[in-house]
Design a protein around this nucleic acid. Structure first.
Length: 197
DNA sequence: AACAAATACAACCGCATTGGT
DNA sequence: CACCAATGCGGTTGTATTTGT
């Protein structure tokens, strides 16, 4: 298999691990001054011993000024659960419907908190209910196969998402950050109504 | 107080996709 | 059309912090 992970194969060794406050400051200052561009250039020009990929991740998940931070509100939590039941593990798409939240954040939240909670409630109510939220998505119904491993999730995406998108385009018209959550709910309502069995 | 286990979160890795040449 | 570099995504791992004993 071709190794195209060029960031990791650079001739000069790149730093790994946690970001120091100094590195954060360098990246932040550079982004504020120059805006987003080619990440490998940003890494170089900001004077960071990091690969572009690492800079991108740090910016998106931590430094971006529009990040919300802090604990998820009950409303957000509800929204995540609902969106996950529709979209499955498409964290970036779920994040797009939650203003100020990142895919990584939501993924972590799901894996550490919600998943566990759902598992507990499932085991307390039904012994055969083994994490259905992860592997029985709406698309299983739409596509008809019912199979839903993570890889197949990606492969099947092109098969069913376009149908859903055509009928329920995202984002809805006149979207603003303050109305995102509200419109997320109406989007959910329309999709679940249309595609529930 | 010391240690282990559990938890939460940050970051990395591999792969797919995209766009330029 | 083939190739390559850059980017984006989701899974996984690593690490700091918190909680329990």
């Amino acid at each position: 298999m071709r190794n195209n992970d060029n960031d990791n194969n650079n001739n000069n060794v790149k730093k790994k691990g946690l970001w120091s406050p100094e590195e954060d400051e360098k990246l932040m200052n550079f982004m504020v001054r120059n805006g987003q561009g080619c990440w490998s250039d940003i890494a170089r020009n900001a004077g960071l011993q990091r690969c572009g990929k690492s800079c991108r991740l740090r910016w998106i998940n931590y430094l971006r000024p529009d990040l919300k931070r802090g604990a998820f509100s009950p409303q957000e939590e509800h929204l995540i659960i609902h969106l996950h039941s529709i979209l499955g593990n498409r964290w970036s798409q779920i994040a797009a419907r939650l203003p100020g939240r990142t895919d990584n954040e939501i993924k972590n939240f799901w894996n550490s908190t919600i998943k566990k909670r759902l598992k507990n409630t499932a085991t307390s109510s039904s012994p055969n209910n083994s994490d259905s939220s992860d592997h029985t998505h709406l698309k299983a119904n739409v596509v008809g196969g019912g199979r839903c491993s993570c890889k197949s999730t990606r492969q099947l995406e092109s098969a069913w998402i376009p149908h859903l998108r055509r009928a329920h385009p995202w984002p809805p018209n006149s979207e603003t950050p303050s109305t995102l959550i509200t419109t997320s709910w109406s989007w959910i309502s329309s999709t679940t109504t249309a595609y529930s069995t």
